[in-house]
Amino acid sequence: MEDVLKIGGKEIKSRFFVGTGKFPDKAVVRDVLEASAAEVVTVAVRRVDPDSSDENILDHIPERCVLMTNTSGARDAAEAVRIARLAKAAGCGDWIKIEVINDNKYLLPDNKETIKAIEILAEEGFTVLPYMNPDLVDARRMVDAGAAAVMPLGSPIGSNRGFRTEEIVRIMVDEIKVPVIVDAGIGAPSEAARCMEIGADAVLVNTALSAAADPVKMAEAFSKAVEAGRSAYLAGIPERIEEASASSPLTGFLR
């Protein structure tokens, strides 16, 4: 049976999601997406600056990709909703990554405002993927509010500190019925593989690519790591067992 990820009625083959921010040269984005075969790609909205000759990022994203607009810059639910509606009006589909941040020091997301935004946008028919602080109860609230997936952070945005939230994300993977996608903080392919090994459904990476000396090569590496981790998860990693051999058999009474 083919292993596909289903989100909002779409079937996604690649479990490696790519963010397109902070690349020094926009043209490299296409090469990154080709090298990694990524299908889900995040973009952001911003005011047009007629004085700058900035190219349109959409020109560098292959047709086959699913665009997911990030609401970055939103400080509360209302702003996130406004950005989502703008993205839809621009003809970029209805996949929205809700990112609400009002803490400028650590850039950690505001789960409460995020939940409010999910309620509104899911009701309007958006496919909503909230970026969140890992938390089981909040994740459940997000699913109840209509989230199509949840995206807990691995460590603070752009920190490249790796998968520090493993214990909580593992619980979320076990308990949450919608896809769990690790977003933010993943700095190296081995960390992405680890996310996948414990059962995360996908990994979203941006800074680790855009800040690499060779983003295209790095994208390839991540893509392989995500696949390897997924295969390991599907193969069933044997549990570590405390080899405390019972002094007497526990089922001896049956004989």
Binding site: I241, E242, L250, L254
Partner: peptide
């Protein structure tokens, strides 16, 4: 495999 299962169940 009941004994094996039993050890894991106990843990």
């Amino acid at each position: 495999h009941l004994e094996e299962m039993a050890r894991k169940a106990r843990d």
